[in-house]
Simulated assay, not measured.
Amino acid sequence: MLNFADFNVTMRLINPNLPLKIYKGHAIDKRCVYLVISKYKPISLLSTKMITVKKFYDNNQSVWRMLFSLNSDSHSSKSMFDNIFNDIINSLCLINSEEKALNTLCSRYEHWQRLLSKIPESFGRLKQQGLLSELYIIKKFLIPQYGVSQSIEMWQGPRGDKQDFILPKTWVEIKSVSLGKREIHISSLDQLNSDNSDGYLSVVTLQESNIYDNTAISLSILIDEIESMIDDDLVLLDFRNKLLLVGYGMNDDEEFIFKITNIEFFCVNQDFPKLKRRDIPKAIKSISYTLDIDAIMDFNICPGEIKWE
């Protein structure tokens, strides 16, 4: 155990075999921290709402110190913080050069910083409704087809991919709507477009319910059901990371209970009514639009017709 008086932290070295010295510990105010020490000067890294980053030059030791401090004491935040550094540390295991290791660490942190910047401030009814719809598609359709590990891997929406699910030869975008609503919002030109293949749009209709409805489901129940199917620690870690990235568990919002009343699938091919990049002037950098669900019923297909492979 080491006490770095300059930082008011007590820490332990994580792995002496790494080319960088990385310590983990707690600050005097009990916040979780990681400290990185290198003879090379690191780039300046941005702090986030969740993590504060500071760098210092130690004239006495002639080294640079980078301190990563967690700004929250919630269990979910601590789990995410540890997951981030587990990922960073794993990326360094095959690197022998200290300078290259430092560059890799900074690059991986910047990757996570971009993801963390997208975590919503709150996780209310609409966000819960959207996440529940995606998880239900995983459990109901993807796991029976691909197994739980590959299904979690294909869930790429939380990491900022164009569509929610990237399958081996196609893709699936999920939209959730409340009962009685028959329109969906397309937030970008890329959401229903792919250079590689046609894909599928799934519209999940939900109705808010309560605990007395035995046909209803909540996010926590659905998440527990999926986690009970996972027997690989790395897959479980990936699943939980993705939940955190969409905002689940990061806030103290009330949990809602929903009944899924309908699931529709639509084939998004070249004839599907969508805006395409080639039809939009180059001066327009972003665009969103609304689709009338009843007006795209010619593209409606049953789940058995979907070419998952």
Rank of each mutant, 00 (worst) to 15 (best):
F7Y: 02
L13T: 05
N15M: 04
N15Q: 08
N17V: 04
P19K: 00
K21I: 01
K21S: 12
H26N: 15
A27Q: 02
V33F: 01
V33M: 07
I43P: 03
I43H: 03
L46D: 11
S47D: 00
T48G: 00
T52I: 09
N60V: 11
S62A: 11
R65Y: 09
F81H: 00
F81Y: 01
F85G: 01
L94D: 14
S97L: 06
Y109G: 01
H111E: 05
H111W: 09
Q113W: 03
L115T: 00
I119V: 01
R125H: 09
Q128H: 05
L132M: 10
L132K: 04
E134L: 08
E134K: 03
I137E: 05
I137W: 05
I152Q: 00
Q156H: 10
P158D: 04
K162H: 10
L167Y: 01
K175Y: 03
H185W: 06
D190C: 07
L206S: 04
Q207M: 13
E208I: 13
I211W: 06
D213K: 11
L219F: 01
E225I: 12
S228F: 04
D233I: 14
L237Q: 15
N241A: 02
Y248L: 08
N251Q: 10
D253C: 13
I257F: 04
N269D: 15
K274M: 07
I280A: 10
M297F: 08
